[in-house]
């Protein structure tokens, strides 16, 4: 199976994302859920999709180790290929770099410095950025807006964040984005919410400018693989 073919059959296509990589829109997305529901799995699926289309992904993991993050990629890639060995796996993995930070040592400024280093020395110039574990409670609107501006200046095509919501915090934005992101929701073009129901897990599309499906759509996730289930 070739990379394009694999990308075309990626369950993420259910979101109506472009599969030929020609989408030049630059967007910032957010995956929200309560702790332990699989935000990283969804982020890694977006990252893998980018990588298969030849884009370079920088995966920033706050509070996780490189090995653990890497194993998410290995597991999900093997789910996508249904165990079939991909000839180009080493080449695909060249499109990924993982950067991990301790929760206490991550700051927007430090990350900007690291990314500048990578780009200025031409060590690794990412097209897509994944930030898993960003602390939305500690960073206000202005800081995030500034961060968005910086990422735009680096020419990133796509940025995805994850955020933890809490059952006891019922605050919501007008569009339905739960706390702690309810006050920064207009900075995001795409917001997806993972929700457990009695017998399944769903991915609710709160808004998605890059998707071909309308807000309010609810997709089912396979609870064992966290891939979007085909209808």
């Amino acid at each position: 199976m070739g990379n394009e073919a694999l990308s075309a059959k990626n369950p993420l296509r259910a979101l109506g994302l472009e599969s030929d990589g020609t989408d030049e829109r630059r967007s910032m997305g957010l995956v929200m859920a309560r702790a332990g529901l699989g935000k990283t799995a969804i982020l890694v699926q977006f990252a893998l999709d980018c990588m298969l289309l030849g884009n370079k992904v920088l995966h920033v993991s706050i509070g996780e180790s490189v090995d653990k993050t890497r194993s998410w990629y290995d597991d999900l890639l093997s789910c996508l290929t249904e165990g079939e060995k991909l000839k180009d796996i080493p080449a695909i993995m060249k499109n990924r770099m993982i950067m991990t930070f301790k929760e206490s040592s991550f700051s927007n400024a430090m990350f900007e410095e690291r990314l500048n280093d990578l780009v200025a020395q031409d060590i690794y110039v990412p097209d897509c950025l994944i930030i898993d574990g960003y602390d939305f409670e500690e960073n206000d609107y202005a800081a995030l807006a500034e961060f968005k501006k910086f990422m735009k200046s680096k020419g990133l095509k796509m940025v995805w964040f994850s955020a933890v919501s809490h059952r006891e915090d019922t605050r919501k934005s007008a569009e339905g984005v739960p706390a702690p992101c309810h006050e920064v929701d207009d900075l995001f073009e795409n917001v997806l919410l993972i929700k457990p129901t009695e017998d399944s897990i769903t991915l609710d599309i709160i808004k998605c400018d890059s998707c071909g499906i309308s807000p309010g759509t609810q997709l089912k996730l396979d609870p064992s693989t966290m891939l979007i289930q085909k209808v």
């Binding site: 180790s65 490189v66 993050t69 890497r70 993995m93 060249k94 770099m97 993982i98 950067m99 991990t100 930070f101 301790k102 206490s104 040592s105 991550f106 430090m110 690291r114 280093d117 990578l118 020395q121 031409d122 060590i123 690794y124």
Partner: peptide, 22 residues
């Protein structure tokens, strides 16, 4: 960190990841 990554990059190295702890 920047200098180290640069030196590995010059040596045809593929950077797998960085772990920053303070």
């Amino acid at each position: 960190q920047g200098a180290v990554m640069g030196s590995l990059n010059q040596r045809r190295g593929m950077i797998i990841g960085t772990m920053e702890e303070g």
